[in-house]
Design a protein around this nucleic acid. Structure first.
Length: 592
RNA sequence: GGGGGUGUAGCUCAAUUGGUUAGAGUCCUAGACUGUCGAUCUAGUUGUUGCGGGUUCGAGUCCCGUCACUCCCGCCA
């Protein structure tokens, strides 16, 4: 018997294969030894098949079968038999048959496992990450990676038919000062100099447009040395694209049809296009977020007008300052059930997002208002609040009094928390939308200068350059984010393709022509040699997979992810390197 | 940089108000068993309670520090 002569995989056999002689290979999923007859569930990538070891097959094979343990790798030759009616396992795809083993070869043994490989068992993540090769054997992981493969295949097929070319860009490139912290790679040949791993192939894809490729894409790794989150890893994969002779509408359309096709190909779900579009300012006002979760019906309301004449000092004080507002949000169904402690927890939550406090008024089932602060409001005002917030009996009205930026941020976070705590959000209730018209610039108090909200190559939404020069703060950008269920799936912009405008942009960002030349000279050069109007977008592949499958973290979509401290527990990286290596690079480690 | 959660047998967890010998299931080992599919039954092995310090007659439990994993804020064009 030769394992390379495998005839079927472990999900293939059916009653139609009865009496066939087959060779199967795989891992021992479980052993059930009855003393006489012994059952093994044999597992490979495709599925499981029950193998029967009967004493009648001979002494030798029976004895070696008794030595089988979980996760041994074996090859068996045997005969397919239909199971009797009462022994059919309906949970198993191959449950109507079993294979009577005639020959058994142990290809590899396995030590006792550090943790069981069943799905739905919470094993501590550091153990799972250390033994990632075992964790990846679990069925749920295999499902995730098969799905990820399908998504990428669907994307490649689609973009090919749309005329996109897949072109690779360098990983060893130049450090750029804007944006995230770079991962640096020292140069041996050029002592004291460094490459950087790209945060994205941004400039290369723009250059490719100038080089005339018109439509580029790449499934590409991007690196950012910033702190991690459930949906953020130091290296992540983007579906990166750039197109020439397009405006925002063309890009929206190309992406909408791509997303639609992914849903259809990979989930068999029909989604309607075009997606909802909302401007940044509106998103911030209604949802307190630039990535609103539209599964949640409640929105934020501006109650400043209604609150003008209230005697509540906290509100009065805030309304007297510039940018001071009273914003409100309805917490539905909480009035009777939430305890004082729950309210205190929510207040602490609001404070962690920068609020000074959180005011709340319960509307009891009998319609009465209940709150420590209710005495500061007359009945008519309370009614107006209730009406504006569309709160029903049994709801709680939440208020944040602060400057606009803080108030909507806090209520945006509260809106998400209340919905998550209620536990009614369904991952497969997919709500997609575009957020458009982002601000172009934001003032950096630390650096006393403007910085680009998106990046310095983003096209301002202006008629002429004077608008930018005269009042840069109020200019919006031709930039857009794609949002799915409260997560930013991707973003992009129309780019500047004019040298003058690009130089002006650098100037506004506090970069003189000299330093702009040093940092981005190649782009400024390229822009002079026939740059077409162009724009693009990048979609976060890991996040897309996470959201489509309803996973809790992108670590479930990445085969070998890092911990929150950016280490790999399997390879134990990062690690020390030898003195010799350091010397070659001219690097000296400073003791802390 | 900051806030929260978790850390007890290989694994998943329990341990009353701080109370005397830290338990259970599972895994593993051995035995029994010819139709199981989370097999079953019997017996057995398994502990630096993450680590360091403190309070106490006595600490898994309380306090301080520290480490690891994780969630969040900041940060992430």
């Amino acid at each position: 018997m030769e394992f390379s002569k495998r005839t079927h995989h472990c999900a293939a056999l059916t009653v139609g294969d009865e009496n066939k002689k087959v060779i199967l290979c795989g891992w021992v999923d479980s052993v059930r030894d009855h003393g006489g007859v012994l059952f093994v569930d044999l597992r490979d990538r495709y599925g499981r098949t029950q193998i029967v070891f009967n004493p009648e097959a001979g002494k030798e094979i029976t004895e070696s079968a008794e030595k089988l343990r979980s996760e041994f790798v074996i090859c068996i030759e045997g005969e397919v038999k239909k199971r009797s009616q009462e022994t059919i396992n309906s949970k198993l795809k191959t449950g109507e048959i079993e294979v009577f083993a005639k020959d058994l070869e142990v290809l590899s043994t396995c030590e006792p496992l550090p943790f069981p490989l069943e799905d739905n068992l919470d094993v501590s993540e550091n153990l799972r990450l250390k033994y990632r090769f075992l964790d990846l054997r679990r069925a749920s992981f295999q499902k995730n990676f098969i799905f990820r493969h399908k998504v990428v295949r669907s994307v490649r097929n689609y973009l090919d038919t749309e005329g996109f070319l897949e072109i690779e860009t360098p990983y060893l490139t130049k450090s750029t000062p804007e944006g995230a912290r770079d991962y640096l790679v020292p140069s041996r040949v050029h002592n004291g100099k460094f490459y950087a791993l790209p945060q994205s192939p941004q400039l290369f894809k723009q250059i490719l447009m100038i080089s005339g490729y018109e439509r580029y894409f790449q499934v590409v790794r991007c690196f950012r040395d910033e702190d991690l989150r459930a949906d953020r890893q130091p290296e992540h994969t983007q579906i990166d694209m750039e197109l020439s002779f397009v405006d925002e509408d063309v890009i929206h359309d190309v992406i909408e049809r791509m997303i639609q096709k992914i849903f259809k190909d990979c989930l068999d779900v029909d989604i309607t296009i075009p997606f909802q579009r909302i401007n940044y300012e509106e998103a911030m006002n209604l949802y307190g977020s630039d990535k609103p979760d539209l599964r949640i019906p409640e929105v934020i309301h501006n109650l400043s007008g209604i609150s003008k004449d209230v005697s509540f000092n906290v509100f009065k004080k805030v309304l007297s300052i510039e940018e001071g507002v009273i914003y409100g949000l309805c917490g539905s169904g909480l009035a009777e059930s939430a305890s004082i402690k729950d309210m205190n927890d929510l207040t602490a939550f609001a404070i962690s997002f920068g609020a000074k406090g959180l005011a709340w008024i319960r509307i009891m089932n009998d319609g009465s208002f209940k709150s420590p602060i209710v005495k500061f409001f007359d009945e008519a005002t309370l009614k107006k609040y209730q009406e504006e917030l569309q709160a029903k009996c049994g709801d709680v009205m939440f208020f944040v009094a602060d400057i606009k930026k803080v108030a909507r941020n806090v209520l945006g976070a509260l809106r998400l928390k209340l919905a998550k705590d209620k536990g009614t959000l369904q991952y497969n209730d997919y709500k997609l939308l575009w957020v458009n018209k982002f601000p172009l610039l934001e003032w950096s108090e630390d650096e006393k200068r403007y910085s680009a909200v998106h990046h310095p190559f983003t096209m301002p939404d202006i008629k002429n350059i004077d608008e930018l020069i005269n009042d840069p703060a109020s200019v919006t950008a031709k930039a857009y984010d794609l949002v799915l269920n409260g997560t930013e799936l991707g973003g992009g912009s129309i780019r500047i393709h004019d040298t003058k405008l690009q130089e002006e942009m650098f100037k506004i960002l506090g970069m003189d022509i000299e330093s702009a030349r040093i940092k981005f000279g190649f782009l400024l050069d390229a822009l002079k040699f026939g740059a077409p109007p162009h724009g693009g977008i990048a979609i976060g592949l890991d996040r897309l997979i996470m959201l489509l499958l309803g996973l809790g973290s992108i670590r479930e979509t990445i085969a070998f992810p890092k911990t929150q401290k950016a280490t790999c527990l399997m390879t134990e990286s990062p690690s020390d390197v030898s003195e010799k290596q350091l010397k070659e690079l001219g690097i000296c480690i400073e003791e802390e």
